Every structure is written in C-alpha cells, then in structure tokens.
Computed example of a mutant assay.
Amino acid sequence: MGSPTSILVDDSLWPLLRVTFPRVVTNEQYTELLERRLSYLQRRERHVSLIDMRQLRSLTSEQREMQGAFLRQQEDLMRRWSMGIVTLINSPALALVIRLIVHRIKPSVVPYSVLTSWPAAVSWAADRLEADGLSEHARRVRQCLGSSCHEELG
C-alpha cells in the first residue's frame, strides 16, 4: 500500500480511534479532521486515540493554531470522553511541536503520550483501555495491531 494522500480515520477497533496522517496535510484536510474528531467526542462514548504522524513532514502554523483552539474549545468533552491520546512521531522537531500544543492547556485534560515506537504506542493505548475496565477491547487492540497485523493495516 502506498502513502496515503488524505488523513485516514479508522474506528474499526472502537473504542480505539486511529488517525493516520500523510506526508503533507492541507488546512482544509486538517479542518475536516477536527470536525470528524468532534463528531466522535459528541458520541459521548469513552475512547482512546492513536495518532500516527510518522509520515507527516510538519504542521503549518495555522494548523497548530487550529489544534490549540480545538483543544481549548473541546476541553470539557475531551475530559469526559477521551481516555487518552497517544501520538506516534518519528521527527523530534514535530514531537516538540505536538508537546507544545498539548501543554497550552494546563493541566492537560486527558492522559497523553508522544512516542516513536509502534509497539509502545499500541501498548500505551491498550493499557488506557484496560485501565478503564475494557480488557476485551485492550486484548483485541494488542492482537490486531501487533507487528504482523500492523504491516497489513498501516
């Protein structure tokens, strides 16, 4: 499978929400992602997000501002319905940008982690599900997103 050209959102392992970024994201695509993210929060169902930004080169200053505004505006929904967000990033510079965006809201409204390893990110997400009493979902995430399945999916 080639590199995606749009942001892929996958809820097939709900309550795990996977978001995979392409190398370059337009402001329009980012706006659509935030609208879609809001629709998941408005379901009023607890969930964990795994954000895969390994292919992404960078976010524009406008996209960083949109993300910060989204986090501030949706703080109550996120606190109530998000069990955590793990972001998978290869670029140290992009990891720093993401950490800065998240730290704009103090205290952080949900548990989050920025990691560079796929297995660590999957484990972190599954641990959050398990901590919320969703052991069967955590097992399914570990099983389905393990190294062999991940190569097929992502």
Score class of each variant (00 low, 15 high):
H47R: 15
M53R: 15
D10V: 00
N27D: 04
Y112M: 07
A121T: 06
S123C: 07
C144K: 15
D52W: 10
R99Y: 00
S39C: 08
H137F: 06
E136L: 14
V25P: 04
L115Y: 12
I89V: 15
I51F: 13
T26S: 14
R57M: 07
E65Q: 12
Y30I: 00
N27H: 01
R44T: 01
V9Y: 03
L88D: 03
L50M: 15
S58V: 01
R104S: 08
P119G: 11
L88A: 10
H137E: 13
M1R: 09
L100F: 04
V141M: 10
S3A: 10
L94A: 12
A69W: 01
L8V: 13
R142G: 03
L17Y: 02
G146Q: 11
R18P: 02
F70C: 09
R54A: 04
V114F: 06
T20K: 14
D127E: 09
A93N: 04
A131F: 01
R44S: 14
G133N: 08
T87L: 08
L38E: 14
A138F: 02
R80I: 05
D76V: 08
L33M: 10
R18A: 07
L96A: 12
R128P: 05
E62P: 00
Q73M: 10
V24L: 07
E45M: 11
Q74E: 13
S148A: 12
P119M: 14
I7A: 09
A121E: 14
V141G: 06
W124S: 11
R99I: 00
T116N: 15
S58W: 01
Y112F: 15
W118I: 14
V97W: 02
R57P: 01
G154P: 00
L96R: 09
L41E: 10
